[in-house]
Design a protein around this nucleic acid. Structure first.
Length: 591
RNA sequence: GGGGCCGUAGCUCAAUUGGUUAGAGUACUGGACUGUCGAUCCAGUGGUUGCGGGUUCGAGUCCCGUCGGCCUCGCCA
């Protein structure tokens, strides 16, 4: 080792020792006679002093150091003179009296330094990611990520899970997200697909009898990015045989509690709270509600049907819904302009027709530009239904079920943050269960799998497969943290007859099924045990545990919104020779 | 594919609602300084205002296009 200690560990107990440190020059303070260097590595910072006693040559060479030079310093640990102790530094009681300096490497003037206070623009940070990753915030997140993954691995190992790797070069299966494709050289014109998840492999491992499987698995989806979505991301993927949904949920409950305890020092009471999908949509308008605050949706469709206000009445009469939020004690803070902004928001982002609002007066009356369209009695009924109190603001959307869900969820999220209805440090873990098996695709006029086509219906809903697929509920469960889907899983279908039925419903005919999932159907015939599992989004969990609002900050080398790596400039063009070998020609877009 | 925000010195930002020579802090370069820790003091270098067009007597500022970053709808079983 080129060093005897790190820059974060020296203290009073080391005084008098001769030590050698290696690190980067974080800051340089040159006083002419004495020069101070803060030497930084990932463990911390230590002040190095080149004092006149060490000789003019050493002082001179230390003063010629520059930001981010990599150096090796040998010297004696000394207590700092009285009054110069730096309490902001873990090593602030001591300093290293330099005797020897070796410049291990120089550094050209960097576009930004880890020591500067302003965080540079994200494009610059991504381009010079190696500098960005030197920043203490980034190092803290990366370390946290490592600890989280270790807890996950330890927990799974302790519970008998076997870590098995599955292929990255697989075959494209239809539905789901768009695949990233890899052309085959040996079989011209054919393609591998990078896995969207190891779903089918892990089911086949269950058939193989590896009854508890786990993998920290990289997954790829070629879809548009978001703050919480990257084209490649990491899942804690696991699967268990001879289990019910309860068993999987209980297993993850234990993991969540352990993560909360070991990473956040938080005791989370188990079992984690659960609500059904239907309840989530009713109360929160979303299948991954942020339950750190209330602001729940209230249905007023029945009142609307009986009222004189045409917007409400006609919505109710055509089978749509009138639902609203009671925003407590905010009427005074919401000008017409601000309400108009919210109206614009629900129109623009969720295609809602509009927003109907009421302010609750000190006397408990509802006032609004549309209030004249209601009888006093109806207003009172609405106020009562909404549990309105003086000073509240009531917001209503009259639209299809889907639009009311989306718009009110959007409003709820936005108002929750803007009005600071929750402590951003707070963590809320919960489950959403009993998802529908299918959703109806109106454009294609057919049923789609809500989760994936291997999801098992609840046993009591099996008959609904034939009679009323829309009512059929799946043995599916999503882990929700602070309004984010942090993981999701299902009990799978383990008999080929049920599987066939589901394929039929989804319009996957036997031949198609054969071509695409033949290997799985085969496997299911060779003694497949009942099985199920879950995949947790590691990047998102790190993001939430680190209290960040963006997934890129939890990934060492993330991609931009256009799926570019700004450091390597991937994706890049390839040689004609490479294309030729693959039998590919590129159709250039017309200018 | 749609909507929105942003792009000015290496970096972070400012620039009178279109007006003269585009500024500040920091970084960088040189100098001074023996106790600093966001060191301080003095001096200096540094600009195609992302790019292209347009409107105007005059554009960093307004308009159109384009490139890039971010947020978002669609999309993401």
């Amino acid at each position: 080792m080129l060093r005897t200690h790190t820059c974060g560990e020296l203290g009073m107990e080391h005084v008098g020792q001769e030590v050698t440190l290696c690190g980067w020059v974080d800051t340089l303070r040159d006083h002419g006679g004495a020069v101070f260097v803060d030497l930084r590595d990932r463990y911390g910072k230590t002040q190095v002093v080149a004092a006149p006693e060490a000789g003019p040559q050493l002082v001179d060479s230390v003063s010629r150091l520059r930001n981010e030079y990599v150096v090796r310093v040998t010297g004696t640990v000394a207590p700092r003179p009285e009054g110069t102790v730096n309490s902001k530094l873990a090593t602030g009681e001591i300093e290293l009296r330099a005797q020897q300096l070796e410049v291990l490497n120089t550094c050209v003037p960097p576009p930004f330094t880890p020591s500067q206070q302003e965080v540079p623009g994200e494009d610059l940070r991504l381009r010079y990611r190696y500098l960005d990753l030197r920043r203490p915030e980034m190092q803290r997140t990366m370390l946290l990520r490592g600890r989280i993954v270790k807890v996950m691995r330890d927990y799974c190992a302790e519970h008998g899970f076997i870590d098995v790797e599955t292929p990255m070069l697989g075959r494209s299966t239809p539905e789901g997200a768009r695949d990233y494709l890899v052309p085959s050289r040996v079989q011209r014109g054919k393609f591998y697909a990078l896995p969207q998840s190891p779903q089918l492999y892990k089911q086949i491992l269950m058939v193989a009898g590896y009854d508890r499987y786990v993998q920290v698995a990289r997954c790829f989806r070629d879809e548009d990015l978001r703050a919480d979505r990257q084209p490649e991301f990491t899942q804690l993927d696991l699967e268990m045989a001879f289990v019910t949904a309860e068993d999987v949920i209980a297993m993850i409950d234990g993991l969540v509690a352990r993560l909360a305890r070991e990473i956040l020092g938080l005791e989370v009471p188990l079992p984690l709270p659960r609500i059904t999908y239907d309840e989530a949509m009713r109360r929160f308008g979303h299948d991954a509600p942020d339950r750190r605050f209330a602001l729940e949706i209230v249905d007023c469709t029945d009142l609307a049907a009986a009222c004189e206000f045409r917007v409400f009445q006609s919505a109710a009469h055509r089978g749509d819904f009138v639902r609203g939020l009671r925003v407590p004690r905010t009427a005074a803070r919401f000008s017409r302009k601000r309400i108009d902004e919210l109206t614009e928001y629900v129109k623009q982002d969720f295609a809602a027709q509009g927003l109907v609002w009421f302010r609750v007066t000190d006397e408990g009356q509802l006032e609004s530009s549309v209030a004249k369209n209601f009888t006093a009695e109806m207003l009172a009924q609405i106020a009562q239904r909404m549990a309105a109190e003086p000073g509240d603001l009531l917001l209503f959307v009259a639209d299809t079920w889907e639009v009311t869900c989306k718009a009110l969820h959007g409003l709820r999220k936005r108002l929750g943050a803007e009005l600071k209805l929750y402590d951003p440090q707070q963590m809320h873990f919960s489950w959403v269960v009993e998802f529908p098996m299918f959703e109806f695709d109106k454009e294609e006029q057919r049923w789609d799998a809500m989760h994936h086509p291997f999801t098992s219906p609840r046993p009591q809903d099996l008959t609904l497969l034939d009679s009323d697929p829309g009512q059929c509920r799946a043995q599916a469960y999503d882990l929700v943290i602070n309004g984010y889907e942090a993981g999701g899983g299902t009990i799978r279908i383990h008999d080929s007859r049920t599987q066939q039925k589901v394929f039929d419903l989804l319009g996957i005919d036997p031949q198609m099924a054969r071509e695409r999932f033949g290997f799985l159907l085969d496997a299911l015939q060779y003694g497949a045990p009942p099985h199920g599992g879950i995949a947790l989004g590691i990047d998102r969990i790190v993001m939430l545990f680190a209290r960040l609002d963006n997934i890129r900050d939890c990934i060492a080398f993330p991609k931009t919104q256009r799926a570019m790596d700004m450091m390597t400039e991937a994706p890049g063009e390839v040689d004609d020779r490479q294309l030729q070998e693959l039998g590919l020609t590129i159709k250039k877009p017309e200018p």
